[in-house]
Design a protein around this nucleic acid. Sequence first.
DNA 1: ATTTTCTATGTAGCAATGCTACATAGGGGT
DNA 2: ACCCCTATGTAGCATTGCTACATAGAAAAT
Lengths: 105, 105
Amino acid sequence: MDDTPKLSYTSALLLQTIRSGYSYGFDIMDVTGLPSGTVYPALRRLQQLELIKSNWEGERTAFAEQRPPRKYYRLTREGKETLAKALERYALFEQLVTAEKSKRR
Amino acid sequence: MDDTPKLSYTSALLLQTIRSGYSYGFDIMDVTGLPSGTVYPALRRLQQLELIKSNWEGERTAFAEQRPPRKYYRLTREGKETLAKALERYALFEQLVTAEKSKRR
DNA sequence: ATTTTCTATGTAGCAATGCTACATAGGGGT
DNA sequence: ACCCCTATGTAGCATTGCTACATAGAAAAT
């Protein structure tokens, strides 16, 4: 019934990061603080699961801005749905934090 | 300088769960939804890192309540400090969620 | 001239983590 | 007899995460 995969925290974080507009590897590394050896393989896995799609930046744009070309990612529809479910699951964390806070007057 | 280990999401969640008063394995499994094969080894690792301590429930209490004895966990001082730092790191997730929300009016 | 720094993507190889399935055990119910 | 509930735990495998390294062009520094 439910074919959406259960995402690790890291995977969910990556999806949310992309969703928030940080859409290429280097930028994602920057925001999340995760190393390249974590980010790039994880992105590849997410793409294999068809939760994200990618396209290379045009060489002309990269050349004009004098830097290597970027590979831009965006969420697929399935990616958005899976992320939504992951956020529900991870909301538990916050509930526990707030519950604990309210305990100590 | 900083000897506090970097916790996985799962480890941080376990610490927070214990902190919130769910202090033995079976209860933790119940709240988090994580299976025993995840929870028990992870608790053992957290104890090896001296982030939590444990003590067995008295046999008399368990006998009186007609159930197997529980192993109760509590955070050490180091555990509390490590958790606090983990929460800072994981706040990034929420920031991204709220940032994204504010983007779509 | 050469070295270093910055942007950018990526892999190899190892260690750590997470999970499924199973094991154990006593009490209570059908 | 058999199953369910509470409770802890392990074996063995698959997946994940990380450190260290590789590549490459442009700019800045020495």
